[in-house]
Design a protein around this nucleic acid. Structure first.
Lengths: 362, 362
DNA sequence: TTGTAGGCGTTATCAA
DNA sequence: TTGATAACGCCTACAA
């Protein structure tokens, strides 16, 4: 039986305390708080007075326990300090907020063990659904079992995973990479290299495939010597830059922002200039890229949208668990600036007509 | 009385289900799970078997309710999409993790109403402590009451707040600004302007004061015409840039990174060159600043440390609530590069001796 | 419209 | 060492 006595006065008031103070039952208090069931004006006012008097604040833990719903969404990202993710998280936050949900955030650092303990934690906290940007490594058997047993909905972000992907929100990385390389080709480059992401990650693979197919369509050679596999971090872009640039490509597609940062640092150290010595197209855009020299030609990814739509999709699944899986694919957008060497190219050969399908920034 | 029957088989197993399956009491299960109280080997093994069998995962909601502790820390930041905060959050995350705590994150957008509802939410979720980067606006009476009534420990981040500050982790912004302006003076600038933060925010004030005092020490005039008050966002730096640069300062201290981004965009549009036409010192450093032209002279703030130490301080308060308040102040670090015009200056006048107190980057 | 009491899944206090 | 059983604070049939 629950405690009907006024509890310790220097701790938060409970619904019982309010009920007692207002001389009503806990049901009435609950009804007032949740605006359910009509409560007579007189009692309602007494309850409201007591609530103010005692500074009553419903305990969401207890409510969640009783209702079997936490109104909380768990989110696992590789690293919130990677500038890509904050905007995704913000989009998710806003969508969650809009529907009365909150976000519980975890970092995996792209390490399987951390991913596992993060998921374990979120499930223990009984979140209503989970947003996951999968690590490069495969799930362990125990993780697979965990996900199968539990009936918490999952939505994958940015990366799909064959053994789990029913629902996901991703960007069309194949197309983005394809267009990036086409742009390099249009700018007159022939010996094009790739500073790519992990091939074990779906979007690393997709970007690589887009790169490859674009070369083929443009009648250019695919040279494995000119393909580097990185891990989306600055350091790998830096090392890859040194290796790749020593092989003298005249164009490079770098598959994410942080690697571009490392890559251009390497170029700087080697005294190789962009875009004079090689053209570059990057992935992902930020307001401050306007201050980079050269200004980067890049493929913008709708980060905020990804987070926002992922939450909306997840909430649909929470409401109607047995729906067909859906993968929502958001479109990237090529933004042509200086680093691809397009302007240089135009000066050299003015004979060609205008290029279509390109959004050139003012 | 709690339910001793095996509950609905397609929902998560409870401690009762485990107890029943292992033919022991819930106490025994609890003891095994928490490694408390010695449990005989035989029973322990039976319990462990049942746990595996049923995929039992303790419900942290129920545990928190019973223990009156959530092992969760609430954190309110203005905007996670502002590149300053992700690293702070990451530092907090790591510290929390280390002590078995988790982070619940909220954005206030520097809007008082959002701050209030965020705090309200965190308290309702019964977090064990709160990390707060205060909004520029004063607390409302109701917020003040809320904080006074509740006995949840608070630690302020980056910004102090006279009416609440007992415990805080901040950076020495006064000193940072002071050194920034000294550096501009050393680089030969005489007509120095300020693109500052909100004066209602403690660090906006401190940076302004540091600016002002440095001018005085250097024997330079303080001209209100050359002082702009922004809000730490790109747009305000952009607008302030247009206004300020039209008054032809030869040096500018910009009090945060995002405003620098806007400021330099304005300079670019106006055809005013940095560092040739004006020297600039910024606040805050990022790996990718290496790609900016000019390379920014800036005052680095120990973002990660701020988050990390704030959590450690908060946890101390959670353990020993009635401690004396402590404000921990972390030191900034001047990083001299090109934008302040120092190199230009050195070329002009080689007569001066070496400058001390400056960490010049390789 | 309002009240009663059982259940949500743990922990913790007393006994045995 | 184990087991009953009362909290923890809220929701919600079912009754009145």
């Amino acid at each position: 039986m629950a405690n009907p006595r006024r509890s310790n006065p220097n701790k938060a008031a409970s619904i019982y305390d309010v009920a007692q103070a207002a001389r009503v039952s806990v049901f009435t208090v609950s009804a007032v708080v949740n605006k359910k069931s009509h409560v007579g004006k007189k009692l309602r006012e007494r309850v409201e007075a007591a609530i103010n008097e005692l500074h009553y604040r419903p305990n969401l833990l207890a409510r969640s326990l009783a209702k079997q719903r936490t109104n909380t969404i768990g989110m696992v990202v590789p690293d919130i300090a990677n500038p890509f993710f904050p905007t995704v998280v913000r989009g998710a936050e806003d969508a969650a907020q809009k529907h009365g949900y909150n976000l519980l955030l975890c970092n995996s650092d792209d390490i399987l063990e951390k991913e596992e303990s993060a998921l374990e934690l979120l499930l223990s906290k009984r979140v209503d659904g989970i947003l996951l940007t999968k690590t490069a490594q495969d799930f362990t058997p125990s993780m697979r079992r965990m996900i199968a047993e539990v009936n918490t909905p999952f939505v994958l972000l940015m990366r799909t995973y064959p053994k789990l992907t029913k629902d996901a929100v991703i960007t069309d990385d194949y197309k983005g990479a394809y267009e990036a390389v086409c742009q390099l080709a249009r700018a007159g480059h022939r010996r094009i290299g790739l500073m790519g992401g992990p091939l074990k990650v779906s979007n690393g693979k997709a970007r690589w495939q887009g790169f490859r197919d674009a070369l083929e369509v443009k009648g250019l050679a695919y040279d494995p010597e000119l393909v580097m596999e990185g891990d989306y971090r600055i350091e790998s872009g830096y090392r890859g830059g040194h290796s790749l640039l020593s092989r003298r490509p005249d164009g490079v597609y770098v598959a994410n922002y942080l690697m571009t940062v490392g890559f251009l640092k390497a170029a700087d150290e080697m005294g190789v200039r962009c875009p004079e010595d090689f053209g570059l197209v990057s992935f992902d855009d930020y307001p401050w890229l306007a201050l980079f020299r050269p200004r980067l030609t890049t493929v913008e990814l709708p980060k905020y949208q990804v987070g926002f739509e992922a939450v909306e999709l997840l909430l649909e699944k929470i409401v109607a668990p047995r729906r067909q899986g859906v993968v929502r694919m958001l479109m990237p957008e090529l933004r042509v600036r200086d680093s691809c060497g397009f302007r240089l190219h135009m000066e050299k050969s003015r004979s060609e007509g205008p290029v279509s399908g390109v959004n050139s920034e003012s």
